[in-house]
Design a protein around this nucleic acid. Sequence first.
RNA 1: CGGGGCGUGGCUCAGCCUGGUAGAGCGCUUGGUUCGGGACCAAGAGGUCGGAGGUUCAAAUCCUCUCGCCCCGACCA
Length: 518
Amino acid sequence: MATNITTRAKDYSQWYLDVIAAGDMADHSPVRGCMVIKPHGYGIWELIRDQLDARFKATGHVNAYFPLFIPMSFLAKEAKHVEGFAMECAVVTHSGLEQDGKGGLRPKGQIEEPLIVRPTSETIIGHTYAQWIQSWRDLPLLINQWANVVRWEMRTRLFLRTMEFLWQEGHTAHETADEAQTETLQMLDVYTEFAENVLAIPVVRGEKSAAERFAGAERTYCIEAMMQDGKALQSGTSHNLGQNFSKAFDIKYQTRDQKVEHVWTTSWGVSTRLIGGVIMTHADDEGLVLPPAIAPIVVAIVPIYRKDEEREAVLAYAKGLMAQLVGGAVAARAVGGSEIMSSVLPGSGRRVVLDLRDGLRPPDKFFHWEQRGVPVRIEVGPRDLQNGKAVVVTRVNREKSIVDAPKLTRAWLDATLATQQQALLDRARAFRIARTFAVDTYEDFRARLDGGGFFLMHWDGTAATETRIKEETKATIRCIPSDNILDSAAGPVDMRATGTDPVSGQASKGRVIFARAY
RNA sequence: CGGGGCGUGGCUCAGCCUGGUAGAGCGCUUGGUUCGGGACCAAGAGGUCGGAGGUUCAAAUCCUCUCGCCCCGACCA
């Protein structure tokens, strides 16, 4: 077992940090709350980005880029928006530096109007859209941007909440309220499908209560995932902004019947937080476990040999397997040192590596790749060479099997990865269902909350009740699920059946998900 | 911002109470033996002890100030 990783049972927070370190994903930066995303972590983000981007393009969106700096005055234009973001804005007030006379430096010239570093881009994009949109013919405007944003957080955790993070933010403008609502829900569906099929994270999609709504939105939808400690992680959001921003920024268009109206806008985003979600959904006490769809390295081949003549024969054999797996010639490229050979899997950008490092013994290499979450490891030694076989170990369950070498083709690899991908999703879904409970009394809810999980409880729909529960238990309404039926440990639960709010005693139109959250 | 804790080679930490001029384990480098689930031997490299000031013949150690980080609370993708 891994000696450099604290077990989940002992200390879940420390486990999370240990997995990131052992998996070579990110480092803390010299600046509090920021992180250095290392190549292996960034490779995961690239695979997330590319596959999401393809989905955005498929739904008619195009990419653009808006500036990092936003005039402070812009933020003031939408009342709720300022209220929500004012406290977490980084503000630029000076330009230039000068000697402070004590061997250090100090800011020099104060600038006229302070700039804020974008915490999100509704305002600058609203301002821009006002210039771009004149007519109904300019609509819908469907734009996404990949960017970094800054939010001055008090407490941070790598990937889950950092002061600077990478994300995508879609910003669309429409002719009608209905179209905006359709877009909002469409992107929620895109996120849901992506989370489940690419990240192998089962999510519940639903709407946020007023208290949890995005600052400036009419309606906020989200996908909520359950981590292995039973806490909820908001993994993506989609907002119907109504005409709040179009009125604040005067985004108007001439209608088909020659009137002038404000447009209806939406925004939606996911961030590098998803990587934290992947870790807390799939990783185990041995380290990272990556869904194959976002694994920068899908296969690590570890050669085993003692003598020089063994080494040569085994390496030749291993290279042959590598060529077979990638479905063609091995295009060797170094990864983190000249001793690891790497071939790109055509059409996926992911890689197969052959670990040639002479300084390490096979067990060291097993741990190395295992802790990085590589889905498939193939071990080949003299015995395999002689028998025409290879030992295959899958990361999901760490099961070993002996496979005939000719079977190890690209088709075999794709099938194996697909099986692993599905197994992760199934496992995570079973985990969530086993920790989802319908509760009918406040006592029952409070008694079981410390054990973690999603609690399906009736709610009278008032902010007062929600606030009381939050203050007394630290649990919040994660969402009002879109689906009528949710699976729980005790079987399917009808979320729309009416009942009584156990806290207030008032009538309830249905159940919502309560949970403690990240 | 309130409450706690901690700053000593790349990492984890000992030494501080009772001042005497810096140590261990891991990691790293080189060579050798090893090699199918975290090896071993040998030889090395690497630290102005977070910073500034003070006390003293002498400060990692005592005093003052300061900076930074971590944990817990109030806010959040």
